[in-house]
Every structure is written in structure tokens, then in C-alpha cells.
């Protein structure tokens, strides 16, 4: 589960990103505290994945900063890997290898066995297919395995890019249960989603539209949300 880092906050300040002439992110800022889940909502191509990949250190921002407590992470990418786990939209798994071999790429053997034994990864329900090659796994299994890979370093922040896309209800439930437990352990969850079911675990929502991020209060009215997007 998340590293014991209760009391810390993350804060994105004025993050900017331009592709050619298109301003994808324009002074994006938000905050989240320990034990919180923040969702970023937005239409397709609104820049959610770009924002998350910048926060995860995959892409570079044109400007802005991202603080974990007092530590600025964008200028010190090496620190990101100790603080942050990132689950991209597409699964980052090696098809020919078993689930176990994929996990071993991110976890050392001792820690992995401990995590599986203590049950922190058990919540993801991956024990049943640890020896199965990834190419034989379903979409839901792959997503849970991807999350298990991302939390190897017991990060304080977990970023998930559309974690429940194209998953069946049981899988979604499984992931939501895991994220709830992650929050309860003091972790911060950032997720982008198109699924209102995911919003049930969120403490704050933001709407990303035309490069600008603004807070949004989801009151259960799906049509209103769809119009806002």
C-alpha cells in the first residue's frame, strides 16, 4: 500500500504545455492532500493524459512546477520514481512474460513476495494469474497487473489514466476497492476518467477544458456533467 506519508500534499502550479501552436495545458494548477482522491474530467483530447504524463515525469512541461511537500519534482525527475506510481492508459506490460515476470521488473523478489503475502496486492486479485503469460490475460487482469507494477515502490501518489476504461463491473469494483484502501493508507490518488462510477471515491473533481483546469462539483447529474465537458 502507499508509503506512510500522511500529512503531505501535492500541488501543481501553472503547468503549461504546447504542441506546435496548440496550447494543450494553460497554467494548470491544483492541490491534493494525503488520503485524497482527485479526479480530472475532460473530453477526449482535452489534455488529461498529457497532464498526467508530465506529472509522472514522462514528458516535459513548457513551464510550471509540481510539488510534493516542499520538493519540486519536475526539475528533479529522479525523485519522481520514489514518490509517484503511474498507470498509463495503455497497459505497459510485456506480452511474452508471465504476470510474475512483469511484476519482477518493478518489484524486487523479497518485497514482492511480502506484498503478496501481507495482502496489499491481494486486494487487486492478481494471485490467480501470476504464472499466466500476459498475452492470455483479459483487459481487467492487465489493468490490475499494471496497477500492481506501478505501486512497486510503495509510492505516496498514484496516478491512473482512465483506469476503468473498457472493464467489466467486477473489475471496476475490484480497482475501486483497491484505491479506497490506498487512500485509507494515506496515499493520494489522481485519476482521469470518463466513468461516473469512479467519481464515488473522489474527494475533489476538476474539469479540464481548452487547456484550463477548474474545480467541478459533481452532484450526480450526469447530463449536466456531459454538457460541462
Amino acid at each position: 500500500m502507499a508509503a506512510k506519508m500522511a500529512g503531505f500534499t501535492i500541488e501543481a502550479r501553472a503547468i503549461r504545455k504546447t504542441y506546435g501552436k496548440k496550447q494543450v495545458l494553460s497554467d494548470v494548477s491544483f492541490m491534493a492532500g494525503s488520503g485524497q482522491c482527485v479526479s480530472i474530467l475532460g473530453g477526449n483530447g482535452s489534455g488529461k493524459s498529457t497532464l498526467f504524463s508530465i506529472l509522472a515525469g514522462v514528458r516535459r512541461a513548457d513551464g510550471g512546477s509540481f510539488f510534493y511537500g516542499e520538493t519540486e519534482l519536475l526539475r528533479h525527475p529522479a525523485r519522481i520514481q520514489n514518490v509517484l506510481g503511474y498507470v498509463p492508459q495503455a497497459d505497459p506490460l510485456m506480452e511474452e512474460l508471465s504476470a510474475w515476470d512483469n511484476l519482477r521488473m518493478w518489484h524486487d523478489k523479497k518485497t514482492l513476495k511480502k506484498e503478496l503475502a501481507e495482502g496489499s496486492l491481494a486486494l487487486l486479485g492478481i494471485e490467480g494469474f501470476l504464472r499466466t503469460p500476459v498475452r492470455k490475460l483479459s483487459g481487467g487482469m492487465r489493468k490490475r497487473l499494471s496497477i500492481a507494477c506501478a505501486v512497486a515502490a510503495r509510492p505516496a501518489v498514484l496516478i491512473l489514466d482512465e483506469p476503468s476504461a473498457a472493464l467489466d463491473l467486477a473489475c471496476k469494483e475490484n480497482i475501486i476497492r483497491y484505491l479506497t484502501a490506498y487512500k485509507a493508507a494515506g496515499g493520494i490518488v489522481l485519476l482521469s476518467t470518463h466513468d461516473v462510477q469512479d467519481l464515488t471515491i473522489c474527494d475533489a473533481c476538476y474539469l479540464l477544458k481548452e487547456g484550463c483546469l477548474r474545480p467541478y462539483v459533481y452532484d450526480g447529474d450526469f447530463h449536466k456533467l456531459a454538457e460541462a465537458l
Binding site: 504524463s53 509522472a56 515525469g57 514522462v58 519522481i80 520514481q81 509517484l84 503511474y86 498509463p88 492508459q89 495503455a90 497497459d91 505497459p92 506490460l93 510485456m94 518493478w106 507494477c149 506501478a150
Partner: peptide
């Protein structure tokens, strides 16, 4: 997968 390359880079 480019997703793996990205995640490895982040890692």
C-alpha cells in the same frame, strides 16, 4: 508498447 517505454522512463 510505447506505454512501457514511458513508464520505464518515469521509473
Amino acid at each position: 508498447k510505447s506505454a512501457l517505454a514511458g513508464m520505464l522512463n518515469a521509473g
